[in-house]
Design a protein around this nucleic acid. Structure first.
Lengths: 137, 137
DNA sequence: GTTCCTGCAAAAGCTTTGCAGAAGA
DNA sequence: TCTTCTGCAAAGCTTTTGCAGGAAC
């Protein structure tokens, strides 16, 4: 049940704790880009002693080690996403939902030659999602 | 002196106020992606009665009308940029600086066909900037 | 004159910090 | 045993809200 997450933690030499396993499982099973508070409120149900600080600490570490990724598209909160294949995010300015977008682009020479060491690439798209567009009509 | 900004406001049918003109001028002359507080602290010097709420209100409006753009790369604060020409941003995780990156990519068919109305495209790159890379050596 | 904007004060919300005790390896 | 992690309480910051007065047109 937790083997997959356990393996990811061990690969990065991170200590395996029940809290980290639960957070990873939650993010893996809820691809809704939850905030720290959403993760916390849900995991607290089965583990009342869980602290929000632990959720903050854990997602920060998991993000640093590229097991999950942080999404800052909205600006006033950080959302998290279980990391997987290259995909990007679309924010609907009408309903606020964050939708996954699958789109790739070959890395350009002028970017590779910019001399900075690029570790992460995030693409954010903003606009109106197809559901909200339909409702407008 | 302010003609350029005055024109931008009038084009969008926004009221022309001294505060908005000063904010636009500040962002135009300081391409360092400042936060609301940085804008506020600097403009307050010549206009002590300026309110931070006004800066918040103004940048929100200017962003809505696409006169400036908001940058949410860091997650725990919103930064603003006068430049709306296609360019993107690189966050150095070592020194925290946000650097402009010029890189283009042809829009892909699968993105154009995704049925959502895409109004904005933001690319965020994260890593270590060339200055910090040199210091590491 | 009407509409929109500014500024103040207060509140709300997300995140960080410091530290003692607990748990993992 | 040593190191790292968790959880609590408090504080720190950024942002939002409500509203009265004022400025723009």
């Amino acid at each position: 049940m937790f083997e997959k997450y356990l393996k990811q933690l061990k690969e990065k030499n991170l200590k395996v704790t029940p809290q980290r396993l639960e957070i990873l499982k939650y993010l893996d099973e809820h691809r809704t880009h939850p905030t720290v508070d959403e993760i916390y409120q849900n995991l607290k149900k089965n583990n009342p002693s869980l602290s929000k600080t632990t959720v903050y600490n854990s997602v920060e570490t998991l993000d640093q080690y590229n097991i999950i990724q942080s999404i800052t598209i909205t600006g006033n909160e950080i959302r998290y996403d279980f990391n997987r294949e290259m995909h990007h995010h679309f924010l609907c300015k009408t309903c606020g939902e964050i939708i996954d977008i699958d789109v790739t682009c070959p890395m350009q020479d002028n970017m590779l030659n910019c001399k900075h060491q690029i570790d992460e690439v995030h693409w954010y798209f903003k606009g109106i999602c197809k559901n909200c567009l339909e409702k407008e009509r």
